[in-house]
Design a protein around this nucleic acid. Structure first.
Lengths: 196, 196
DNA sequence: ATGGCCATGTAAGATGTTACATGATTTA
DNA sequence: TAAATCATGTAACATCTTACATGGCCAT
């Protein structure tokens, strides 16, 4: 008689992996603490809305990847979750190595998507778009820099590293926008960045 | 009497904007041609599956943003779509300026998400992760470089620019991974890139 | 004690995915 | 002409978003 085939666990989504990673690396946390972590991050990609996080926690719990360690105790029924051994295995498998192609390939970029349409635009319109984008990214870069330096000053080495990743990516986008303006024969003011 | 309030058109999603942009900048195209464009791109972010593209085209058509210009003529009932004036307005509004914060803020990065969990990992595990990631990104960078140089050689200026954006972002991710390895006191082989 | 924020959820809807179905065209 | 591929779709499902509901805690 063949052994009962255990249903293979479906691969974790990016959001599930990130949440599992938070629980694993920050220790016991409530769903609300997880939401705050996402909201504090400089990326706007995930809203980490209640409607995303609470059901996700429920799924992970039902799959036995996390379990309640204890309650917050403040009458609001908050639960502190931790990884189960199965959860830690799932997390390590999501982490890799090996890195799957979707982890390696270039992330999506709304600015790049918009530059794709430049064939439709006049030189003037291109200049208007790039000028506006460059100004906004410059301001945003300073925000990320402050965020990253604060993490470093607080001695949070991993958070510093993560912030640095966001900073490097933003720097690259900004330099690309300036390069695009040059290649298209547009004038741009070359601001001197005080870089990390 | 108040004028009848026209229902405000909902903002375009990133995928809708990109598709509208393809139709606008490449001229009349079939849904299939749009899917091929996505599949040819080095990014794996959108599968541009049939189940995404065909219903999306249907929505844009129903909203009056695109219309059928003519059929392909080859018995397969393929339609060539073009922008309507309302479609061009919607596209320009999606493009900006001004760039909304979601367009400016740092794109999501699966590698960054994984580094967030480093607190859980031993030095050895971190080194294994970074080493694997660095090797894969190095190989991927060469692919993007070839893709970008081909576009340049073909004289496709806009596509070259877009490829360059993907290249710059990949370059930044690779340099960040190497920087991370150094900051964490790990040894990495410093390969000399022949860069664009 | 009450108005505002904290915290946990749920409901409805939009959008994307995988898998499948179907017929036309090209190629061996 | 048979098999492979091109091209257009549909169906079932998963996941995320916005908006709402509910009740506890806290400051005035």
């Amino acid at each position: 008689m063949k052994p009962a085939r255990r249903k293979r666990p479906p691969a974790l989504t990016e959001l599930e992996g990130s949440v599992l990673g938070m629980i694993g690396s920050r220790g016991p946390c409530t769903p609300y603490a997880i939401r705050r972590d996402f909201q504090e991050s400089p990326s706007l990609y995930w809203s980490a809305s209640a409607g995303a996080v609470y059901p996700l926690i429920g799924r992970l719990k039902k799959q036995g990847l996390i379990k309640v360690k204890r309650t917050t105790g403040d009458g609001r029924g908050g639960n502190l979750y931790v990884l189960t051994p199965a959860g830690e295995r799932a997390l390590r498998s999501w982490l890799g190595p090996p890195c799957p192609p979707t982890t390696i390939s270039v992330p999506p970029d709304p600015l790049r998507n918009r530059v794709e349409t430049f064939a439709m635009l006049s030189v003037k319109e291109r200049a208007a778009f790039l000028g506006d984008a460059i100004r906004h990214v410059e301001a945003y870069l300073r925000d990320i820099q402050a965020y990253t330096e604060r993490k470093k000053a607080d001695g949070e080495e991993i958070d510093y590293l993560v912030g640095l990743g966001a900073y490097r990516m933003t720097q690259a986008r900004l330099e690309w926008l300036r390069e695009a303006a040059r290649l298209l024969g547009l004038k741009v003011t070359e601001e001197n960045d005080s870089s990390l």
